[in-house]
């Protein structure tokens, strides 16, 4: 990737012990349960994990689409966690989101021009002829025909819709974008187009991404660092090469062993770690380390206490009793 080198000390975003609980009747659902990490300016931080582990909730809470239950979200030195909606409004220009479902993320009753223009209207960025010009410019930026601004979302394919969503996010010229599984609903051939577009835009505009996915190989390709989540917690975070070549956490090891290797010889002989059982309910997670019920290396102390989030090697964090 022809990207500017990333300054390891320039944190665009710092998440400290972020929690998001949903109250469901009498029960508390711990969708995100104490995650801490930083995102450097200009980097792509990948987040992976099985369905339901709280990736989307984490992304949405960081953007203050949900009010955090606890913890801090420090964006360029400013804590967002306690800001009200009106105090957040100017900051909405700095951070944006691209959504998973290209069919649900565009209002079916609005034209493409109005969908992209909404951002301009809300922040009073452009009106009249300038608004139209800007919308067309944004459409060209994502390789869509600017003449299509008066069309409706249902007239476009999934990949095109996803690009409309990207144009909408770019309209406010953000610094940081949460990409919530932006390609998992697309055909494989179109996935590459969208990923390439995201990379080009990152280069051109110096964007910082938090890239959520469950496809590990795509995340490795696009991310500088990758964090692995399990049941609302971050279990491991490292540079992507390192995470893939030397995973420490048993859960990461299991996830990686499930990726097929395009070499029949290796593929046949390698050992696959199969996780047993289902992901426990986030309403009622196991005590101690919440992975212990499925962990092939579980020890007695795993039930007693939750493991600490530790930097076991430079820039390689893991939460596991094997390394405490």
């Amino acid at each position: 990737m022809a990207k500017k080198p990333i300054d390891q000390n320039d944190n665009l975003l710092e998440i400290r012990d972020l929690k998001k609980y949903f109250q469901i009747g009498e029960n508390t659902l711990k969708a995100v349960d104490g995650v801490s990490f930083t995102i450097k300016r200009g980097e792509t931080l990948g987040i992976v994990g099985e369905s339901g582990c709280g990736k989307s909730t984490a992304g949405r809470t960081i953007l203050k689409l949900y009010d955090p239950t606890e913890g801090q979200i420090i964006f360029e030195g400013k804590d967002l966690s306690k800001l009200s909606n009106s105090e957040m409004k100017p900051l909405r220009r700095e951070m944006q989101m691209i959504f998973q479902d290209p069919y649900a993320s565009l209002n079916p009753r609005m034209t493409v021009g109005d969908i992209i223009g909404e951002a301009l209207d809300i922040h009073g960025l452009a009106s009249g002829a300038k608004r139209k010009e800007r919308i067309q410019e944004l459409l060209s930026l994502v390789s869509l025909n600017p003449e299509h601004m008066n069309r409706f979302p249902h007239e476009f394919s999934g990949g095109q819709r996803q690009r409309i969503g990207i144009a909408r996010a770019l309209a406010v010229e953000p610094k940081f974008i949460v990409c919530d599984e932006p390609i998992s609903a697309l055909d494989v051939s179109v996935q590459a187009q969208v990923v390439n577009l995201l990379e080009q835009l990152q280069e051109k505009m110096g964007l910082t991404y938090m890239f959520i996915a469950h496809d590990l190989s795509m995340v490795k390709y696009i991310s500088d660092r990758v964090g692995v989540m399990y049941l609302g917690k971050m279990v491991e975070l490292a540079e992507s090469d390192k995470l893939y070549s030397k995973p420490l956490h048993p859960y990461t090891q299991a996830l990686l062993s499930a990726i097929p290797i395009p070499d029949p010889e290796i593929e046949r002989n390698r050992e696959r770690i199969v996780l047993e059982g289902d992901v426990p309910s986030p309403m009622n997670p196991p005590s101690g380390c919440n992975f212990r019920t499925r962990c092939p290396k579980a020890m007695p102390e795993c039930a007693a206490a939750a493991p600490q989030w530790k930097e076991v090697e430079p820039n390689h964090f893991v939460a596991c009793h094997l390394y405490n």
Binding site: M95, M97, F99, S105, I122
Partner: peptide, 17 residues
């Protein structure tokens, strides 16, 4: 709950909008 409503929220849309 639709994503386009979340998208509007993330752009800073208020309740009325």
């Amino acid at each position: 709950q639709q994503e386009y409503v979340l998208a509007a929220r993330s752009l800073g849309a208020d309740d009325m909008r």
